[in-house]
Amino acid sequence: MARILVTGGTGYLGRLVVPRLVRAGEEVRVVSRSPHASGDGVRYLVADWTTGDGLAQAVGDAEVVVHLAGDQLHNEQVARTLVRAVRDAGARPHLVNVSVVGAEKVPVRSGFDRRVLGYMPSKLAQERVLEESGIPWTNLRATQFHELVLVAARALTKLPVVPAPSGWQAQPIAADEVAARLVELALGAPQGRVPDVAGPEVHTFRAMMRAYLDAVGSRRPTMPVRVPGGASRAYAAGANLNPDRAVGKQTWAEFLAEHVERR
Rank of each mutant, 00 (worst) to 15 (best):
V6D: 01
T7F: 10
T7R: 08
G9V: 06
G9T: 09
G11S: 08
L13A: 14
L13W: 00
L16K: 08
V18K: 05
P19D: 11
P19G: 14
R20A: 15
E27H: 15
V28H: 02
V28K: 00
V30S: 10
S32G: 05
S32V: 04
S32T: 15
R33T: 15
P35A: 12
G39Y: 11
G39S: 15
G41S: 08
V42Q: 07
R43V: 15
Y44W: 12
V46E: 13
A47R: 02
D53R: 12
G54N: 09
G54I: 05
A56L: 06
Q57M: 07
Q57V: 10
V59D: 03
E63M: 05
E63I: 04
V64T: 03
V64S: 00
V65S: 03
L73M: 14
L73S: 10
H74Q: 08
N75I: 02
E76L: 07
E76S: 11
A79Y: 03
L82P: 04
A85Y: 08
V86T: 01
R87L: 14
R87H: 14
R87G: 02
D88H: 03
A89C: 14
A89Y: 09
G90P: 04
A91F: 05
P93C: 02
V96T: 06
V96E: 03
N97Y: 06
V100D: 03
V101I: 15
G102K: 00
E104S: 14
K105M: 12
K105P: 11
P107D: 12
S110G: 14
G111V: 13
G111H: 06
D113Y: 03
R114A: 12
R115S: 07
L117D: 01
L117A: 11
P121A: 07
S122D: 15
A125S: 09
E132M: 13
S133P: 01
G134I: 04
I135G: 01
P136H: 11
L140M: 11
L140H: 05
R141F: 09
T143C: 02
E147F: 00
E147T: 03
V149T: 07
V149A: 12
L150D: 13
A152S: 06
A155Y: 04
T157Y: 12
K158R: 13
K158T: 13
L159V: 12
P160M: 04
V161N: 08
V162S: 04
P165F: 09
W168D: 01
Q169F: 00
A170G: 12
I173L: 13
A175C: 05
A179F: 05
L182N: 11
E184G: 13
L187S: 05
R193D: 10
V194M: 11
V194G: 05
V194E: 08
P195Y: 06
D196Y: 07
A198M: 07
E201W: 02
T204D: 09
T204R: 05
F205H: 01
M208V: 06
M208L: 15
Y212S: 02
Y212K: 02
D214M: 05
V216K: 04
V216A: 10
G217K: 00
R219S: 09
P221S: 10
M223S: 12
V225I: 14
V225M: 13
A231W: 01
A231K: 03
A231R: 03
S232L: 00
N240T: 11
D244L: 12
V247S: 14
G248F: 03
G248I: 08
T251K: 04
A253D: 15
E254Y: 10
F255G: 00
A257T: 07
H259V: 10
V260H: 04
E261P: 00
R263K: 13
